[in-house]
């Protein structure tokens, strides 16, 4: 009997395809292209305690096989989310993961307390946004702070499983995975974007107003695969893998490296049906091979 369902921290997903935070809004826009209930899960735009305007434009630049963004967490704030989008998404048969971000530990605690009473199924802790000046990334660099913020959010939001989203811009991502686990994370997701820059040779200026941005897209996939494998060998909690996924074979590769589910981000911009198409193709593959997708997790065979 083939199976495409996966379970992360007690939450069942009908398939392992989740849309990545910041690329899918709150689901409404893509709901006009296809029924978002065909997805396993949706990760919301990063939410902050107060509405946030984000960085001045330009906020996006293309790179070979990828892109850089510097949105800077523009969002309507957690209260707006709770009044509008949380209710909209709760009616849908899809796992909803609220992505939360803060500038201070108190911010994280305050927003976690609010999400604790929401209808969202899980919380993804954004401690790795490279596009805000303070907080965010600062919490994601050192293992001690990863553990501290994870533990604080876990206490403030006991009703929801916590996924700590890890940054690749660190000395050793496996150490941060262990720190998240020690802090009580129910799962980890990785990788967030790689810090990068796009330059205009004519003006000698960076293309992004923010100068730096986060790189994503197919070009980061090899980095992400290795980091998922490194973390798989470091922790027992489930891993959600992301970074440059554009096909069902990419999903298979991530799962073989240890991911139990995946997120699709940048590809949504290239193909608005992208995440849905990957879920469909994956279903066909699993049926044709009469397999349980869970049996793939962490089955990488290293060369001697």
């Amino acid at each position: 009997m083939s199976n495409l369902k996966v379970n992360i921290a007690g939450v069942e997903f009908k398939n392992p395809i989740i849309t990545a935070s910041g690329t899918f809004g709150f689901g409404r826009e893509y709901d006009r292209f296809y029924n978002i209930e065909e997805l396993g899960g949706i990760c919301t735009k990063g939410l902050t305690i107060k509405p946030k305007l984000g960085n001045p434009p330009p906020r996006i630049a293309e790179s070979y096989g990828g892109m850089l963004n510097s949105v800077g967490l523009q969002n309507p704030g957690v209260d707006h989310y709770l009044q509008k989008d949380d209710l909209y998404l709760a009616k849908r048969d899809v796992v909803v993961i609220a992505n939360v971000a803060g500038s201070t530990l108190d911010d994280y605690i305050a927003i976690a307390e609010k999400i604790n009473g929401s209808k969202s199924d899980m919380v993804e802790l954004n401690i790795s946004c490279p596009n805000v000046k303070e907080g965010g990334m600062a919490f994601g660099v050192l293992p001690q702070s990863v553990e501290r913020v994870t533990s604080a959010v876990k206490k403030a939001c006991p009703n929801k499983p916590i996924i700590t989203k890890l940054s690749p811009n660190v000395a050793c991502i496996a150490d941060n995975a262990k720190a998240a686990e020690a802090g009580g994370a129910d799962a980890i997701s990785l990788i967030n974007t790689l810090s990068g820059m796009a330059v205009n040779y004519k003006t000698r200026k960076p293309i992004l107003f923010n100068n730096n941005g986060g790189m994503s897209g197919p070009c980061v996939k090899p980095v992400a695969l290795k980091m998922v494998w490194d973390c798989y060998n470091a922790v027992k909690i489930p891993i959600i893998g992301l970074g440059g996924i554009t096909s069902y074979t990419d999903v298979l590769e991530f799962m073989i490296c240890g991911a139990r589910a995946v997120q699709v981000g940048t590809y949504n911009f290239n193909n608005p049906y992208g995440a849905r198409d990957i879920a469909k193709d994956l279903a066909t593959y699993v049926e044709e091979n009469n397999m349980d997708i869970n049996d793939l997790v962490g089955t990488l065979i290293l060369n001697k």
């Binding site: 690329t23 826009e29 735009k45 434009p57 906020r59 963004n69 949504n268 608005p272």
Partner: peptide, 17 residues
């Protein structure tokens, strides 16, 4: 005119003040 991502309002990169 703006540099765009999704083109449908989800990604918030093409903003103007």
């Amino acid at each position: 005119e703006a540099r765009m991502g999704c083109g449908i309002g989800a990604c918030l990169v093409c903003n103007c003040k």
